[in-house]
Amino acid sequence: MRSERVKEAGAAMSLEVKICGLSEPRTLDAALDAGADVVGLVSFPKSPRHVSVEQAATLAARARGRARVALLTVDATDNLIAELVAATMADILQLHGQESPERVRALRLIFGREVWKAVPIGEAADVALAQPYWDVADRVLFDARPPAGASLPGGNGVAFDWRLLADLDPKQSFVLSGGLTPDSVVEAVQTTRARAVDVSSGVERGPGVKDPDLIAAFVTRARSAAVSSSQR
């Protein structure tokens, strides 16, 4: 069962900002310097943001002590996850595949890490897809449903209608993702009352190529969104 401590922390803390798909020391440093709370490393060969186990280890070591590290995988085997965890000492497993609630529960027990489960959103009925995961994942990550024919489960630069989450209990530990940008994050946070946001393609100047200026702008504007939301 998900820890009550995580629920309480989620209800009380300020906005948490995650920059995902970092693959170079230079842009990882940009995220850390901007004050990102979580940095994400992608292990999925189809993604332009994919890093090897060795690259992930180097980047995680560079981030250690300055931000939490999340490993994004897609229907990965236990062996691959074990190799990645051993190499990076990651804090979070972020699951973007077809992982069942039982699989999420098992991975959380096996690896003793915080687990985030991505749920794709395209229409109102999709919000209910999160229901089986609330009690087995530490957080549910709401991402936009991939466009038809897309090869990636996320990082497609597509947003969903944030109003679909407007009635969600803000005490639920969820992360808002999907096509966020420095220009849209304020509205997104104010609409959903999210306490955590995750960006990848929205801070890139090309597929997999992060832009330090966009990273800094995103973190700054996300922080301002959290302040303005708390004053409403």
Rank of each mutant, 00 (worst) to 15 (best):
V38W: 02
R103E: 13
L93Y: 02
V51Q: 07
A118S: 08
P132M: 12
L41N: 03
V38T: 02
A144P: 08
A124M: 12
D161Y: 07
A56F: 09
A90G: 07
W116H: 04
A159L: 09
L152M: 06
E102I: 12
A34E: 09
E99H: 02
G112M: 09
V115H: 02
M89L: 14
A76Q: 02
R105W: 11
W116V: 04
V51C: 08
V158T: 06
P146C: 11
S151W: 15
L93C: 01
R108A: 10
Q98N: 13
L152Y: 09
A57M: 08
L93R: 05
Y133F: 10
Q131N: 15
A31Y: 01
L28F: 00
Q94R: 00
A130Y: 00
R68N: 12
F142G: 05
L109S: 15
A87T: 11
P120R: 14
H50M: 10
E54H: 13
R105Y: 09
R139A: 10
L95F: 00
S151E: 15
A130F: 02
R64N: 13
A148D: 15
A128D: 14
G65S: 03
A34W: 01
W134C: 12
Q55M: 11
R113N: 01
F160W: 02
L107A: 00
D37C: 08
E102N: 13
D91Y: 06
D138H: 09
V74G: 03
A70D: 03
A76L: 04
G155Q: 05
V115C: 03
L93H: 07
D143S: 08
E102V: 15
E54L: 11
A36N: 03
S100Q: 03
Q131P: 15
K117R: 09
P45L: 11
A159P: 02
D143H: 08
L95T: 00
P45R: 07
D126Q: 02
E83H: 03
R145I: 12
A76W: 05
L129Q: 15
L72K: 03
P153C: 15
V140A: 05
T88P: 06
Q131S: 13
D78V: 05
G97Q: 10
S52F: 10
F44K: 11
V69T: 14
A106I: 05
S43Y: 13
